[in-house]
Design a protein around this nucleic acid. Sequence first.
DNA 1: CCGCAATAAATTGGCGCCAATTATTACGCA
DNA 2: TGCGTAATAATTGGCGCCAATTTATTGCGG
Lengths: 204, 204
Amino acid sequence: MKRKEDKRPLADEIAQAIQLGEFRTGEWLRQIDLEERFSATRFDVRTALEALVVRKEVQHVRNRGYKVPALEPEMIGYHRDVRVILECGAVPQIVANATAEDVARLSALAEAFSVAAKSGTHMDQSRTNREFHEAMHALTGNPVLVETIWSIRDRGRSAPFTIWRTPDTLRQSDEDHHQMVRCIREGNAAGLSEVIESHIRRPH
Amino acid sequence: MKRKEDKRPLADEIAQAIQLGEFRTGEWLRQIDLEERFSATRFDVRTALEALVVRKEVQHVRNRGYKVPALEPEMIGYHRDVRVILECGAVPQIVANATAEDVARLSALAEAFSVAAKSGTHMDQSRTNREFHEAMHALTGNPVLVETIWSIRDRGRSAPFTIWRTPDTLRQSDEDHHQMVRCIREGNAAGLSEVIESHIRRPH
DNA sequence: CCGCAATAAATTGGCGCCAATTATTACGCA
DNA sequence: TGCGTAATAATTGGCGCCAATTTATTGCGG
């Protein structure tokens, strides 16, 4: 029940648990459960939840508690549009900065996702997917951009995840990744933008 | 010293005070001062400051306190690049959605800034400027996009403000606003993007 | 007169209790 | 047996104290 130094990460731990679908959309996050699950004091749990509210990753209802936000369809659309703007906006820098070894590393990460898509757990798929996109965004060399992209992604994650793992969409995502790598290798910015946009807009 | 219902707004009040330059860049935000200035309890002040840390609008140093972040030049550059991506990414929707009355309203707001630029206080200039851009962004019809744009703008506000009010840059900004209105009226998306980009990149 | 060290004042920050509110259960009455 | 209501249990949420740390002040020696 004691956490002295690492207080901040608790918010991220809870956030990650939400991303991994360990709490269902609309589910209440009971403070007592959380303090047990993460071995934290009640106060720390509340601080973390409050931070997640500011980040819009959980919703707060007065005198009722904190819950995983159930965002309506139109909000999901808004999120998607912002993602398209940001992630396509990142393309020019990505293409400009990518070295041969960057491409090689990306390719390896895309391959890791391929493997996970075929024979991995949900968590493997989620992890390798995130690693691939993280590596790609990092190529922009702009930490503010990277952070902004992830803040939007993380906000819209609660819903899509449940419907995500159909074999078909999974295979499609996998193909997209490899195609992105190809575009970057060829310096094809326009092509990369196209792939990213359809990757985001695909009916998850 | 008592605030029962309106707890959340305190963070925004403090944020606004920072935007208006009432605290200098790098200045320490003493909790005692804040609780006096805003007639809030110590606990509420700390909650608000913690929220602002999550939003990256203030910086926290352990055992020393909270201060207005002094962001180094390269960070300012990163912010600008993200702003360009977001605000130019908003252009297509703005142009597509703008009705004749929207253009009229924008024009009026641009004019209000013109007046403030000539004979208003700093606060007038800041306010009318914000109102103009808020109205323009609102035309996207995408609240997530609007909010994202402002979260980036508000993070990079601390420094530029002091150097902002030279008559020349002020006049330049004023011209930009009117040109933006013109582009929207003509449905000239490419032109609008250009103006916005140079508006943002101009050496404030 | 200046620099350094010990002391005092001020400020921050971790933590937990208890009242207020909501959900649940139990009971009595139609 | 079903429904409304009251008692009970569970959960949330506002608030404040005091230790830890830093900064300012004072006093002393060189």
